[in-house]
């Protein structure tokens, strides 16, 4: 329809320059075309231009509005303005800012990770130090315990030795005394035996030689002992 109107239009334009009788004829022909194409356009207007005008006045698109070349200049101009503004804003303001924010974040993340790594290392060091202190303390304690044990052992040994010595001394003293007692007892028994023997011999009327009696008693005692 659009091109029909356009095709009709040059005919009308052409006839304007021609003589008057031809003009009316051509206009009528153009009106006929226009009315045919745009079904609802009133044919009574008698002019193709007005037929097109009515279609537009009714608020309807004549053909594809996208192909209406008269609007192209306007659209292209404003599109270029918009794109220029957008390009300027994006390339000068927005994109550098977003780039900066993203790299800042990347930096912050890397920094945080490094710091975390450092903290981790520190924690490990602290743990190692703690372990070392613990084992040192343990070794010290062991040493002290061993020293104390050795001291006690020494004291104990000394005391035992002293006690042993005392016991030995006492024992030997006691033995000495017992020996003395036994000796004195033996001597008493011998003198009693000699006396008794001498008395017995005398009683029997004998005249006993003291020496012989002693020897006999000693021999007898030796055998008894």
């Amino acid at each position: 329809m659009f091109s029909l109107l356009q095709a009709a239009a040059p005919t009308a334009a052409e006839t304007d320059t021609h003589a008057a009788p031809a003009n009316a004829e051509a206009a009528a022909a153009a009106a006929g075309h226009g009315a045919d194409a745009a079904a609802h356009a009133p044919a009574a207007t008698g002019h193709a231009v007005e037929a097109a005008g009515h279609a537009e006045a009714a608020g309807q698109a004549v053909g594809m509005p996208q192909l209406d070349i008269t609007t192209f200049g306007n659209q292209i101009f404003w599109l270029l303005v918009t794109l220029a503004v957008l390009y300027w804003v994006l390339s000068k303001v927005a994109l550098p800012r977003i780039d900066a924010v993203i790299s800042d974040r990347q930096g912050a993340i890397t920094g945080d990770l490094m710091q975390a790594e450092e903290y981790k290392k520190k924690a490990k060091d602290a743990e190692a130090a703690y372990d070392k202190a613990l084992s040192d303390a343990r070794a010290e304690a062991h040493k002290i315990v061993a020293a104390q044990k050795a001291d006690i052992q020494k004291d104990l040994d000394n005391a035992i030795a002293k006690a042993d010595a005392e016991i030995a001394a006492r024992t030997s003293e006691s033995e000495k005394r017992i020996g003395a007692i036994r000796d004195s007892a033996t001597a008493d028994a011998r003198s009693v035996a000699r006396d008794v023997t001498a008395e017995l011999v005398r009683a029997f009327g004998g005249n006993a030689d003291q020496g012989a009696i002693d020897a006999a008693v000693d021999a007898r005692l030796k055998g008894a002992a």
Binding site: E50, A52, N74, W78
Partner: peptide, 27 residues
């Protein structure tokens, strides 16, 4: 109506390249 028919050199009603249109608004 009928004020923009470029093929007939009727252009007084046509959209000028600089004037704000609905395309301008939405751009």
């Amino acid at each position: 109506p009928g004020t923009c028919v470029p093929s007939q050199n009727i252009t007084e009603g046509c959209i000028r390249w600089y004037e704000p249109t609905n395309a301008t608004l939405w751009l």
